[in-house]
């Protein structure tokens, strides 16, 4: 009960921090726009299968950039202070929920920006938004947890990439398949099964993050 009461307060703190240091959010937004523009300039006319892959690669890099700072933005002493106040599972859940919301926003923005310049080949909008939703949650869970690991080590920026990218591949590969369905690139009768698979992977990683995080923060 205590944990559940702590989560909203911690999420509110994340929003407040984000709002106070506007450069971080502004930086990521600019990152989204410039990536979209670079990709558009490189390809100009984008065929749907390529559009699909490019979109998810852009969201991947945006997500890594947005989530990396979730533990490194605040210094060690302040984190120690949080840990005396809050339960570790409240800390990880609040970060995951905050990052999920942030990534949903960023990925929808990427979608709008990319379809503005390169055209919008999405046919099944509902399925595509579902893919963005599940993908953002999956990336938020994975990268939040990996950033908690990487933050403890030296050269955490390099570690973030080498630990995070292979681990995200199961999620990314199933995302690309689901959204290929939404784009009409492939027609697959078992798309419901793919969604269940993605949901299951998200759930397993979330459960592991919950179980394992208490071992990470205790220094």
């Amino acid at each position: 009960m205590e944990t559940i009461r702590q989560i909203p307060a911690l999420i509110a703190k994340e929003f407040l921090l984000e709002w106070r240091s506007k450069y971080a959010l502004g930086g990521v937004l600019l990152y989204v726009l410039s990536t979209v523009f670079i990709v558009y300039n490189g390809f100009i006319r984008v065929a749907p299968p390529v559009w699909n892959v490019l979109f998810w690669i852009m969201t991947l890099f945006t997500s890594v950039n947005a989530v990396t700072k979730s533990f490194s933005a605040e210094n060690g002493n302040r984190q120690l202070y949080y840990y005396t106040l809050a339960d570790p599972s409240a800390v990880i859940f609040s970060k995951i929920i905050y990052n999920s919301l942030l990534l949903i926003l960023l990925n929808v923005l990427t979608y709008f920006a990319f379809s503005l310049v390169a055209g919008d080949p999405v046919r099944d909008k509902g399925l595509f938004y579902l893919a963005i939703l599940l993908g953002s949650i999956g990336m938020a869970v994975t990268f939040t947890f990996i950033s908690a690991i990487a933050n403890k080590a030296r050269n955490s920026a390099t570690l973030m990439a080498i630990l995070g990218f292979p681990v995200i591949i199961p999620i990314l590969v199933s995302l690309i398949k689901i959204s290929a369905n939404a784009l009409g690139v492939i027609t697959d009768t078992s798309v419901g099964q793919d969604i269940m698979t993605l949901l299951a992977i998200d759930a397993i990683l979330l459960a592991l993050a919950y179980i394992l995080f208490p071992f990470l923060w205790r220094d």
Binding site: I149, P170, I201
Partner: peptide, 17 residues
Amino acid sequence: RISAVYNIFAFATLIPL
């Protein structure tokens, strides 16, 4: 401690892979 945490996480992603 931290590599033990990562090892458990890695095995859990190995199965879907």
